[in-house]
Simulated scan of single mutants.
Amino acid sequence: MTYINLPSNQQAAISDVDETALRTAVRKCLDEERMGPIHGLGLSDCGPYVGTKLHAFQQAIAEYGKAKAHAKRERTRQDALHAGNDLIHAVQQMKGRLETEHKEGELFFIDDQIRPPFHLSKRLSVQVSFRWRASPSSDWKHGHLTFVYEFSPQPSYTLPMPKRKPSAAEAARDLEDSLNREWERLKAQALFSMREFFRDGGDGDAVPEVFAVRPSAYGGGLNNFSCNFWQPERPVP
């Protein structure tokens, strides 16, 4: 699973979509009340965001095609038109994201293909590798930062109390599940923070090798600032 980088196959599919052809196909789908005109544009290969909008448009066209009464046909046509515009907008957004990634890729790249360790303990860590350079003509430099997080599971007060005390095996499974979920959150926050650092013009030479993640002051756990290694720790109000 990728977090901040579009997979190469999605990049190619998004790049290949012609916006003019897409607009024409959406109009034809509305006129013909079927999805045939949009097949062949490769939208299903453009990732889950475009895929969700494509599915919504498909459902809207199907509802429009089934409608008989005049009032229902008017309503379902408007729904299909709205869904078609959403699909076009989604493709435009992904093209914009692809352009941003290509532009940023001239100066930095963060590897988001990070596999979880075979065994997790409450001392969680994620190592993020990256490369950067001062200008597109400069040589690449490489580095990595290990984010270390002391995870302290918090009881959930929103769930009902269990009728019996869980067995040791059940407790171990619950802890393992919690550690896996928290490790995934740590990975995501680490990647987002690293990208923010470089987007804001951060110098890779200033990145430390290890950073102790700062849990939220409100009940522990991770928040959007926990992995911001370049910022001073926020004081508690």
Rank of each mutant, 00 (worst) to 15 (best):
A56K: 15
E104R: 15
E182Q: 13
L124D: 07
L22P: 08
W132C: 04
Q189D: 14
A21K: 15
H39C: 02
V26N: 05
Y157R: 13
L120Y: 03
P48V: 10
D45N: 09
I4K: 03
F229W: 02
A90H: 08
L81G: 00
S8M: 06
Q154I: 08
D139N: 09
T158C: 03
A12H: 15
W132Y: 07
Q127M: 11
L98N: 04
H55F: 14
E176I: 08
A80T: 13
S193P: 05
K141G: 00
R133G: 00
R77I: 00
T100L: 09
Q127F: 03
S156D: 15
I14F: 09
A69Q: 13
I38M: 10
W183E: 01
S156N: 15
H142N: 09
Y149V: 05
I61S: 06
E150W: 11
S167G: 15
L6P: 02
K163F: 07
K28W: 06
H144G: 04
I88T: 11
F197C: 06
D139K: 10
V50L: 03
E32K: 07
T158S: 11
G96S: 14
L87F: 00
A60R: 05
A172D: 00
L87E: 01
D174M: 13
A169R: 02
P237V: 07
W183N: 05
A67Q: 07
N9G: 05
T52G: 13
S156C: 08
F57E: 01
R34G: 04
R123V: 01
F211V: 02
A13F: 11
E63H: 05
S152F: 02
F147L: 14
A206C: 13
P117C: 11
A190C: 04
T24I: 11
A83D: 11
P37L: 01
M1S: 14
W183D: 00
L87T: 07
H142K: 12
D16W: 01
N224H: 14
R27M: 11
F108A: 04
V91G: 05
V213D: 09
R234Y: 09
T24C: 11
G219S: 07
M35N: 03
D45M: 10
F197Y: 15
D86E: 14
A212K: 15
D177G: 13
L22K: 02
